[in-house]
Design a protein around this nucleic acid. Structure first.
Lengths: 359, 359
DNA sequence: CAATCGCGAAAAATCGATTTACTCGATTGG
DNA sequence: CCAATCGAGTAAATCGATTTTTCGCGATTG
């Protein structure tokens, strides 16, 4: 910035036109690949473009057009591996089709979610991939509907009457987790979830409970559904375990199934606090995998969401709509993979316990 | 999309003008907050805006303007907590100043980095926050210079002759890590890094080595600098330890200092493979903190980069330049915090060893 | 031979704002 | 008292493309 050299105005379509000795309209056609231009003229345009280093101004270009070659993506946050990978995937897929992805984070706020959507509407994005903060019935989806926007809903959704949806098959994955835990003999299991994203959480919970009860009618399933952020969950979980220890309502569960990543972290930190080790003192499975889960001791069992598949089908669906595809909205569920790692063991398998509160 | 209802054209400035009984120019002035408009007319404009639900079209608006109210951000990846938080911070700061942040991932490729930059130049962004893949001397920074773009370089940079830079004070943090490890008695330490991002890695390495040697001239510091991605590093690390075990070059180091997050993960997984436990069999400190590091057993010691400070100063510097601030480019280094957690212990402190390969 | 057709290209309209230049009164100053 | 200044507002130019309309001209056709 010190010198601010050069800085000459970038060449416009008219500069190219006059250099090539044709009209601006002809240049526009050549750039768009229209074939009804005499080869000789086309060549002169190419030469002029080369010479001047001309690039189409997307701003001016898009203004005349109804839709821009831009896809908007709205994620609840950028800090977890899941959404990070999701954005990366979506960006790459958009690019493959000649579109630019513009990503924004709603920071877990429905208000911001709608503001971002308004801005994207102003930008006349061709389509939106929305991972709602709560679920498909929020104000954001309503806004999209009201303004005739094209879009796809992903992740924290099940199905919608206006938009295609793509998400992980939480219920099936949870059912498999249930099979594993029940199969290993667990009969007292705590499920940790977030109360706010109603639909998805319930799918996970019901998928788990249904299968568990079918396989072992005597199983006891406790549920802690936190509202809000991490801290409430932490204290709720603390209370839950305090109660169990105190001998009040019963004993400590032999396994915990967390329905979301933060819950897994909170559960682990609570185990630490109490000096419990997995899997000897308690077993743990979490929904959502992360890179670190396979390098810790013990490795943490997790449900791996199919990020690539979700991104891929979301984009397929979105572009089908952008290109005018009609028909009723489709709700897709992508199968997850359940990785049973060392954090899951047999119940009551207290080898060299862990009761001793080190640290 | 099934019905594609409503869909009426959005109101333009002329619609508002005719409703309010004034000219388009007046509406434009009112929207821009110019005060030389009769209050009565201004009110009529506001009413019309309200009635029609008018919003300024940023596309048309920005075309006339030289610079758009957009900040571009280019990160090497979105999947780590560090860059995720960085984007979130930058987005929030840009928004506070009435700008929109458009983020893109170079996916660790300098080629992509430049392509993204070209696109952002086409969009006439007001400024760019670039976290280069390699360092400040890549083609991207060159492109920015050549095109007179306004920008700030962050993270994998030290200083530049054209742009302001902001990054973590790697050297100081590494020096503190050295003090801690030497202070605990470690005299044989392995440092793991990435060879490609020359400057930053060397700052970290030199900061560590300098301080370590000053405090304990007899210390042995081995260095494994990987080229490329994770897999080469994994095999290099494996070879290194095989050698140490085999009794070839010497014995196993008592501590490992990883200069970057992936290195920490690879080191941990290598420890697992060999059945080594932290801190009894070996100590570990990593550059870059992550949420999970404090819930595992042991908690992993780490250098915490000051994301908020880096983002804050980057934006301050960027907007100062956008608003015409002159002067030589400034290179900022933000202090890190070193969290010595349980993964660091005394050397040779093999309690109940770990040699036994469980699992 | 006039009317029609078609092709390729130019001219002009358009997108939706901003900005410049200019107008018309009213106020102020010398 | 007339000129200069100012306030408030408008018409028109502009930004850089795309798209529609028009046009010139040679080839076909009736």
């Amino acid at each position: 910035m010190a010198h601010r050299q050069g800085q000459r105005r970038r060449p416009s379509i008219h500069d190219v036109a006059s250099h090539a000795g044709v009209s601006a309209a002809t240049v526009s056609k050549v750039m768009a690949g229209v074939t009804t231009v005499k080869p000789e003229n086309a060549q002169r345009v190419f030469d002029a473009v080369e010479l001047l280093g001309y690039r189409v101004d997307p701003l001016a270009s898009d203004m005349r057009r109804a839709k821009r070659r831009i896809i908007g993506a709205i994620m609840p946050e950028f800090e977890s591996e899941f959404f990070g990978q999701m954005v990366t995937q979506l960006e790459s897929l958009a690019e493959q089709r000649g579109y630019t992805l513009v990503a924004a984070s709603s920071r877990e706020s429905e208000v911001r979610e709608k503001e971002i959507l308004e801005r994207m509407h102003d930008w006349r994005v061709a389509g939106v991939v929305l991972a709602p903060v709560r679920n498909e019935h929020g104000p954001a989806a309503g806004f999209m509907k009201a303004n005739g926007m094209t879009g796809v809903l992903i992740d924290r959704v099940l199905s919608d009457d206006a938009f295609d949806t793509v998400s992980a098959d939480s219920a099936a994955a949870s059912a498999e987790v249930a099979r594993e835990l029940i199969g290993k003999g667990h009969r007292h299991i705590l499920v940790v979830g977030l109360g706010e994203q109603a639909a998805t959480m319930h799918a996970r919970l019901d998928g788990f409970r249904g299968t568990a009860l079918a396989l072992a009618p005597d199983v006891r399933i406790d549920v802690v559904l936190a509202e809000g952020d991490v801290e409430p969950l932490r204290s709720q979980l603390r209370d839950y375990f305090d109660q169990g220890e105190g001998g009040g309502g019963g004993q400590r569960p032999s396994a915990v199934y967390s329905l979301f990543l933060k819950g897994t972290l909170v559960a682990l930190s609570e185990f630490r606090r109490r000096g419990w080790h997995c899997p000897n003192d308690i077993s743990l499975v979490g929904f959502d995998d992360a890179e670190w889960m396979q390098v810790t001791w013990p490795a943490i069992a997790a449900v791996v969401q199919p990020v690539r598949q979700i991104a891929g089908h979301a984009m397929d669906a979105l572009f089908a709509r952008i290109e005018g595809g009609a028909g009723p909205p489709r709700a897709r569920l992508e199968p997850c993979q359940v990785l049973m790692r060392e954090s899951v063991g047999l119940p009551g398998n207290r080898l060299h316990s862990g009761g001793g509160n080190r640290q």
